[in-house]
Nucleic acid binder design. Structure first.
Lengths: 247, 247
DNA sequence: CAGTGGTCTAGACCACCTG
DNA sequence: AGGTGGTCTAGACCACTGG
């Protein structure tokens, strides 16, 4: 394989399809192919890297199973944009009065630019001096608050959001991040825990103090694996359900 | 591909590697290769089914990613036995007084042979007349009850357990199922919810009535996908944590 | 050493999509 | 019709395991 084709020198001890996979990831992270755009065809990649199409397919297979790419027969191979809209439905089941699933609307209650706690600073790999944007918002269904969210963003990447009028924040933040700040969420890690509602959370969510609350901590990262959003979401435990398959 | 090689007639509209995959699953389900025993080599399978080794590899790839098989270079391809021992650690973090992770011991409190509820009967695909074995047991760490479990088994498959002395039940039931009843767990589905402790659960777990409790409902199935164990596990929510990666 | 799975090639033909 | 990914072949050689 022609080493000169690679963005950075690959580790020759790895199989070619792994080296190829890594190079494709770095090209995607560099923005060479935008989300939902087709990447080079398998034949082109095989020629470019001087490997057979079978090897190209194996590299792409890995990225498809990682959720980075999707293939469509006859059309091409595409950079996948994760569908985080529905990510809450992974944990919470929200239905309107008539039983239809609904996506909650959002309202930002507070925004401040402050030094983050040490926990959040480390999770976001921020320098000690760097400030963060802190958003507090609620999510509502038919006027009723169902979720309470705390969001932390490194100021350096999200400067625009430090001054954006609060009423211009949308229900979904990730499209906003992409449009205004050129930040695309590629993956996330979530941790679930159960708490008993504090007086403050209870009054926000309209539940009794001490009743169970699900807390989802999420760290979202870009295609290069660098974390850039820290978020905690709290909701009443009775709207919660999660399903896992084990093998 | 030689159709006569197949246990049941495969669907010719499917790719060969899919047909092959399905036939391997049915041979595993039929017990042709025991758990932790090597299956036929790739070359043998290619000859037997009259396909190339690349196609055999693709079929095996699918089963490996399904968790049914594992491959070891130089040794062979093996039927995988899921490690359910640690399945509780997926949700609950148990540590002993000195901070080491521990596996709780178990004690069966009650056993009865009764007609199951409609919910459980349907989940286990049992006939209306069939009876079930119901076990109530607790799991303990250093003498303290940390989990409370209700287990339902179809009597037909688990007759031996209807009369086994209660003190001969072991901490882990799945090895017992396999040894005494020839039932091997191949996969399971688990659903998590949060409840507030009833007085009974609270006294079992040594927590306050109304404090949050995690409930894990599990349906375990054999290699053929037939469910044969229904189980619910309750534990205090403060021992709970779960982590997910999203892409 | 022989036997296993792991990597890789250089094609072929098929199924699907778009213009 | 031309281009894409999907399936499949019939090998080759390598890396690892065990006797």
């Amino acid at each position: 394989m022609n080493t000169a084709s690679f963005a950075s020198k690959p580790d020759d001890r790895l199989p070619r399809y792994q080296q190829l996979r890594d190079d494709l990831v770095s090209r995607i992270a560099a923005g060479e192919w935008a989300p939902e755009k087709a990447i080079a065809t398998e034949a082109e990649l095989g020629q470019f890297y001087n490997v057979s199409t079978g090897t190209v397919r194996k590299a792409i297979d890995l990225l498809v199973s990682d959720g980075v790419l999707t293939r469509t027969q006859g059309k091409g191979t595409f950079v996948r944009r994760p569908r985080f809209d529905s990510s809450l439905f992974r944990f919470f089941r929200f239905v309107s009065r008539d039983g239809q699933p609904v996506r909650p609307t959002a309202r930002v209650l507070k925004r401040e630019v402050v030094k983050p706690s040490e926990e959040i600073r480390i999770a976001l790999q921020m320098k000690a001096s760097e400030k963060a944007i802190h958003l507090s918002r609620v999510r509502l269904i038919e006027g009723r608050t169902v979720l309470s969210e705390e969001i932390w963003l490194p100021r350096a990447r999200f400067d625009v959001l430090a001054t954006l009028p609060l009423d211009q924040f949308e229900d979904l933040l990730y499209p906003l991040y992409e449009r205004l700040c050129k930040q695309v969420v590629a993956s996330a890690t979530e941790i679930l825990r159960v708490e008993q509602a504090t007086a403050e959370t209870a009054s926000l969510l309209g539940i009794k103090t001490g009743s169970p609350v699900i807390v989802v901590h999420r760290v979202a990262s870009d295609f290069a694996g660098a974390p850039f959003e820290w978020r905690s979401t709290r909701g009443a435990a009775d709207t919660f359900q999660y399903q896992v398959e084990i093998r």
